[in-house]
Each structure stands twice: as C-alpha cells, then as structure tokens.
Amino acid sequence: MKVVVVDDDNLVCLALKTILEAEENISVVGIGHNGKEAIELYNSLNPDILLMDIRMELMSGIDAGEAILNKDKNAKILFLTTFSDDEYIVKALRMGAKGYIIKQNFECIVPALKAVFMGQSVFGDDIVSKIPSLINGSETTDFSKYGITEKELEIITAVAEGLSNREIANKLYLSEGTVRNSLSTILSKLDLRDRTQLAIFYYKNK
C-alpha cells in the first residue's frame, strides 16, 4: 500500500511515517506540508491513499481534496486532524473523502488505512454520531423522482443505518448478490460515489 502523508507539522509527518512503515505492507512514498504539495504529490506519485491534515497554510486539506477528487473521483483520501469541526466534517463527507479521523486516535490510523485500502469508508464514532444532525434537511424528498423503487429505498435506509450487505440481505430477505447489484444501480441513479455519500444523501433528503 503506497501512502502519501501531508501535514504542516514535520514532526507529525515523521511520526506517521515511522508508525506506518512499521507495518509490513505499508510504504510512505511521499511527504508534503500543505494542500498544494498534496495535489502535486498525488498527481506525480499516484498513491493508494492520501493521508492528509485539514488546516494548513497556502491551501487547506479540504480544498486540496476537492481538487483531487474533481480530477479523480476514485481517489482515496483519509483526513487526519485535531479538529472535530462540524463544517469540516460535512465538507469531507460531501466531497467523497473515505475517512475523517482525529489525530489523537493514533491507534486507529493503521486499521483505518487498511479499511480504506479495501474500499471501505472510515469515520470515528465521535464523527458518525454527528452525521444525522449535521446533514438532515428539514424538507422531505420524493425518492421516486430519482427512479428509486420502494425496495431500493429500503436498501438505502439500511445503508444509512450502517448495515453491511449481509445484514441488509438478512433484514430484507434478499441475497447478498442482489443487495450488491441493487446498490450499484442506486448509486448510478443518484450519481453518487459510495455508501457514505448514499447515507449522506438519505439523511439530507429524508
């Protein structure tokens, strides 16, 4: 797993490099200190994951993340920050970041990277608990106008509740393959990237 680390504190970068490269299958291929360097490093090194701070001089991690994802929607960005700021959380979620974890939780960094590498989205418990209140809209949405069927809405609701494909299959008496295919169809209909954005869409519009 190739990782680029970007943080405005060089000591933090070096500490992260030491922690990550203690793992057999993780290699830190580049280190940067602001958002502009993050973009340059991502474009030149094509890492599997970009592990990036948010508040940095010249360009923030949020702005850099948006620029990268606008160019490469499959980019895997994991934000690591000391700030559990509501505005940052919402922006990170909506842009399609794969994770947002707090720096103090150093023991979570390696497991989070591995999860993101496997295609999962990772948000700390303190972040997840905030999501519904942060993005829940006041108006309800008619999901059928997006071509969403009743069964698909049930699947969307289950995803928003944090259920895995297997748990959704058991709850709705479907096969895992059907759930997986339905999720692909739903994401295509709504023009969303992944389960996290789907959950956000649901809470924002329910």
Results as ranks from 00 to 15, higher is better:
Ala97Leu: 05
Tyr173Trp: 01
Thr81Leu: 02
Asp125Pro: 13
Asn74Ile: 07
Asp63Trp: 09
Asn105Tyr: 14
Lys189Arg: 02
Glu87Arg: 10
Leu69Tyr: 06
Ile89Gly: 02
Thr185Tyr: 08
Ala92Met: 03
Ala112Glu: 04
Gly162Leu: 06
Lys71His: 15
Arg94Ser: 09
Leu80Thr: 03
Lys171Ser: 12
Ala112Asp: 01
Glu154Val: 04
Asp72Cys: 12
Ile89Phe: 00
Val122Thr: 13
Asp85Lys: 07
Gly96Trp: 05
Thr141Glu: 14
Val128Met: 15
Lys73Leu: 14
Val159Thr: 07
Val179Phe: 07
Ser188Pro: 04
Ile68Met: 02
Leu93Trp: 06
Leu187Met: 04
Asp142Ala: 11
Glu161Asn: 12
Ile156Glu: 02
Asn181Leu: 10
Tyr173Pro: 05
Lys171Tyr: 09
Gly99Glu: 04
Ser129Arg: 12
Met118Phe: 09
Asp63Gln: 13
Thr140Ser: 15
Tyr173Arg: 05
Ser133Ala: 13
Leu172Asp: 02
Ser184Glu: 07
Asp63Glu: 15
Asn70Ile: 09
Ile102Asn: 01
Ala97Arg: 08
Ile135Cys: 03
Ala115Val: 10
Gly119Ala: 06
Phe117Ile: 07
Phe106Glu: 11
Ile89Tyr: 00
Leu187Asn: 02
Gly65Asp: 02
Asp63Arg: 07
Ile101Arg: 07
Ser138Trp: 15
Ala112Val: 08
Ala64His: 08
Pro132Tyr: 03
Ala158Leu: 06
